[in-house]
Simulated scan of single mutants.
Amino acid sequence: MPLMHPQFNPIALDLTRFGVPVQIHWYGITYLVAFALFLYLGARRVKKPWFANAGWTRRDVEDLLFFGVVGVVLGGRIGYTLFYKPMYYLQHPLEVFAVWKGGMSFHGGLLGVIAAMFVFALLRRRSFWDVTDLIAPCVPTGLASGRVGNFINGELWGREADPSLPWAMIFPQSGSLTPRHPSQVYQFLLEGMLLFGLLWWFGSKPRRRAEVSAAFLVGYGLFRFIAEYFREPDSFLGLLALNMSMGQWLCLPMIIGGALLFAWSRNQPLPAAAHA
């Protein structure tokens, strides 16, 4: 018997009943959780000898969060308009700014964060790879928080599933009572918790420059590629060449780029603190 999506109320706290024009959504809370986890984990990362000896502080983590938020919002929105609906937004350019209507791309957000970290590195006169190696293990918990928000909202549901699958779930938001894979949960476990565990373990020891960044690219790319087999493709795109979704095609450059970066990093020295 398939499970039924709980149909959560997307509003966690409604103060309008008390005359205060404020509604706090669960999705907004998951973003706050993501930011808080980034600050907590980043503060722990900068205490590692190889980061502390290089002059990294908690204040740097706070500044990185600000740069990252700007990058992910701008990049996520621009990426969505370019990767998923370029012709529509070409005909309706002002709707690019209508972010309240939804439409964000993780891969675009990643490019936005990369650009933001590049600017941060220039301003602070640091190596770009030192910046990304610091933050990479702190990112997956934020991705996990976002998937919790997707599940609460009943969005980004999965493809049709065998009704006998114990965790097959019906999402009325999909417009049908067809049992589906709870792909948000799959992504929470793969791209979120599993990737976090692997990166936190890998980054807990001194690594050559760009190694941790490369591990993030390969790890996220692989896990997202797998999860996309269970996630319903965007209705306006469907499956593309080789029966792969847009998300899978966008993961391939991540995996290839991460592998090449990993090979390049093998020629980089270990941090000075590692030798001590």
Rank of each mutant, 00 (worst) to 15 (best):
A276D: 00
E211I: 04
I255K: 05
T57I: 00
S235K: 13
V70K: 08
D60S: 08
A54Y: 06
S164M: 15
G146H: 00
L198F: 00
K85E: 15
L165D: 05
S265H: 03
Y229Q: 13
R77G: 13
F18T: 05
G175F: 11
F151I: 09
F128W: 11
L110Y: 00
L3R: 14
S245I: 03
S265W: 01
P86F: 09
T132R: 05
R125S: 14
G146V: 03
F120R: 06
P269F: 04
Y229K: 02
F202H: 04
L82Y: 06
W129P: 10
S265A: 14
P49Y: 03
L260Y: 06
H92S: 05
L74G: 15
V113Y: 00
L65R: 08
A259H: 06
W129C: 13
S213Q: 08
R224M: 12
G219K: 00
G19E: 07
V185I: 09
L111W: 10
G158W: 08
L260W: 15
R17H: 14
V73I: 15
A98Q: 08
F120W: 12
V72K: 07
I114R: 07
S145A: 05
R208T: 01
P137A: 00
G79P: 06
D133Y: 10
R124N: 14
G192L: 12
E211P: 04
Y220Q: 08
P172V: 05
L261Q: 07
L143C: 01
Y88V: 07
I78G: 09
D63M: 11
A274I: 08
A227F: 02
P182F: 01
A215K: 05
G192F: 09
A161V: 01
Q23K: 07
N53K: 14
P86I: 06
F171V: 00
R266E: 13
P140A: 02
S213R: 04
L239D: 12
R17A: 11
W264G: 13
Q23P: 04
F128E: 06
F118D: 12
L82G: 09
T132N: 12
P6R: 03
M246S: 12
V218W: 10
A34D: 09
A210S: 06
L222G: 10
P21V: 08
P163F: 08
P10F: 14
R44A: 09
R44E: 03
H275G: 11
G68H: 11
L240T: 01
I170Q: 04
V131K: 09
Y31L: 00
S176N: 10
T16L: 12
A43N: 13
T57H: 13
I152P: 02
P253N: 13
M193P: 07
W50Q: 04
I24E: 10
Q173L: 11
D234T: 01
L122Q: 15
F66T: 15
G102Q: 00
L270Q: 01
F38N: 10
M244K: 15
W264V: 14
Y31C: 00
V131G: 08
R44D: 10
C138S: 10
Q184Y: 09
A272G: 12
Y88S: 09
R17F: 07
Q187Y: 10
F83R: 03
Y31V: 00
Y27F: 09
K48G: 08
D234I: 00
F18L: 13
I256T: 11
W264P: 02
G219P: 01
R231L: 02
S145H: 00
G257P: 06
M104E: 07
I255C: 13
